[in-house]
Amino acid sequence: MTEHSEPRRRGRPRGAKAGDTRTRILEAATAEFGEHGYEAASLRAIARRAGVDPALIHHYFDGKQALVAEVVKVPLRPDRVVRDALDAPVDELGARLVRAVLTAWDSGAVRPAAVAALRSAIGQGPVARMLREFLRREIMHRIAATLGDADDAELRAELAASQLVGVIMVRYVLEFEPIASVGVDELVRRVGPAVQWHLTGRFGSLDSDAPSAHNSSHGE
């Protein structure tokens, strides 16, 4: 075998610094997400654009979700926040989701970047498209999957998310009072049952005195 036929080595290119390689991967991910969106972009395509082996991406990043968080510079993994909240009994999902999301957004290290990312998501352009696809794939679909075989699981998940996004917009982006200053516990008590209702058609354990759908005037 001649020196020209030596197989390509896996891993970081010779002489490449870790910081340089990581930066190249992030730049490639930004370009790939911008051109193809979150769902269509693949780790293999990002690696090819960066000129590295695909396995090297996993050396620096925990999958495509982590790349998105790095690209938009948010020190938070919303897919993990939702995943942890969904690891709960069905009747506690609403309260757990509200608490998890608001606790994460209340962090001083997270809020500025998260607000900027949210503003980007509701705007136009490739970054907005990437964020919307990410949120739909990693959060909406994850919530819907938790609801099992319900025919309207995606609708339920989106309605629940609309409650959360509404609170986030008013509390952290618009900063309207008094909701901007209300404690997380109080918001969980008030908003949790509404989110639970959208998810399951029940108000959940936090609002056991609330009237059920069967006792409402709409059910008569």
Rank of each mutant, 00 (worst) to 15 (best):
M1Q: 10
H4A: 15
E6T: 15
E6P: 01
P7W: 08
R10K: 14
G11F: 03
A18G: 10
G34W: 06
H36W: 08
Y38C: 06
E39A: 14
A41Q: 06
L43R: 11
A45D: 15
A45W: 06
A45I: 06
A50P: 01
H58A: 13
D62R: 12
V72L: 07
K73I: 02
P75W: 10
V81C: 01
V82N: 01
D87K: 08
A88F: 00
L97P: 01
V98N: 02
A100C: 07
V101K: 02
L102E: 06
A104T: 06
W105F: 15
W105I: 12
A109N: 10
R111F: 00
A116I: 08
G123F: 05
P126G: 08
V127Q: 13
R129V: 05
F134D: 04
F134Y: 11
L135M: 09
R137A: 15
R137H: 11
E138P: 00
T146A: 11
L147R: 01
G148Y: 05
G148V: 00
A150D: 12
L155C: 06
S162A: 14
M169Y: 13
Y172P: 05
E177F: 10
D185G: 05
E186H: 05
E186C: 01
E186K: 07
V191T: 05
Q196S: 08
G201V: 04
L206V: 09
N215K: 10
S216Y: 03
S217Q: 08
E220L: 12
E220S: 11
